[in-house]
């Protein structure tokens, strides 16, 4: 068979091949994104995502959305501009969370015996759904960056609060007050993570008193917008076929 001949002989066959490609591509995309995004997120979000006693109102809220909007922006750029498919962000988060859960369950719990209620990952799904939805509804990268990126940052803390709030109940322990999350960090010994490297509740937002979480979330949302632009361009460049098109 020469290269100019078609590999399929009927419409039904063409549809079947096209569908097979759909699943192949989706499967590959899912796992490639899972691998790359997971490594990226572990290196940048790291301990803030690993441990409940790092999930504070200032730094976790600020750092996690900023470093996690990267891959969703890039994959959106590729899937939207080339296929008009609006699930770039969600597919990223599905991959990331699967990778994280496997890692936390098998390694943190199964291998090292840290309780899962101490080392579960952060929930990033609400922001991803809204990000994808905004892209579809507006079809504009700029609006997605501004409205979607803003939502990404703002929805992070409320999206996680139902999971972490029970761990922020205070407890008196040997004459000191701490939260249950602090107590988890104290009880479940991390030999390699001394207390002083825990970066929580630090910063200059003291004047906002107890309303510091929304302020941090807004700051995070603004930076997320910028990061979205940047990574959207990465994604567009990555998805370009200029280099392989026949001359």
């Amino acid at each position: 068979m020469s290269a100019s001949q078609s590999a399929v002989r009927s419409r039904a066959e063409a549809v079947k091949v096209s569908r097979t490609f759909d699943w192949l591509i989706l499967f590959t995309l899912f796992f490639v994104v899972l691998g790359g995004y997971h490594i990226h997120y572990m290196l940048t979000g790291g301990d803030w995502d690993f441990w409940t006693d790092w999930k504070d109102r200032r730094l976790w809220v600020t750092v996690a959305p900023i470093v996690s909007i990267t891959f969703p922006a890039a994959v959106q750029a590729c899937l939207w501009w080339r296929y008009r498919l609006p699930f770039g962000a969600v597919v990223c988060i599905l991959g990331l969370l699967l990778g994280e859960w496997i890692n936390r369950y098998l390694n943190f719990w199964g291998w090292t015996y840290f309780p899962v209620n101490f080392c579960f990952p952060s929930n990033l799904m609400p922001g991803a759904i809204v990000l994808d939805a905004v892209l579809l509804l507006t079809g504009s990268m700029t609006v997605t960056a501004v409205i979607g990126g803003m939502a990404w940052g703002l929805l992070f803390y409320p999206g996680n609060w139902p999971i972490i709030a029970p761990l922020h109940v205070p407890v008196e322990y040997n004459g000191m007050m701490m939260t249950l999350a602090d107590l988890q960090g104290y009880h479940y010994v991390r030999t390699g993570t001394p207390e002083y490297i825990r970066m929580v509740e630090k910063g200059t937002l003291r004047t906002f008193g107890k309303d510091v979480a929304p302020v941090s979330a807004f700051f995070s949302a603004f930076v997320s917008i910028l990061i979205y632009f940047l990574w959207h361009f990465f994604g567009q460049w990555f998805a370009s076929t200029k280099f392989v098109e026949a001359a």
Partner: peptide, 20 residues
């Protein structure tokens, strides 16, 4: 998110920030 936030706050009215 709105509903789960509200029900969480109702269930856990007293929470404190992490201590460090």
């Amino acid at each position: 998110i709105a509903v789960s936030m509200a029900s969480t706050n109702e269930k856990f009215p007293i929470t404190t920030p992490l201590q460090a």
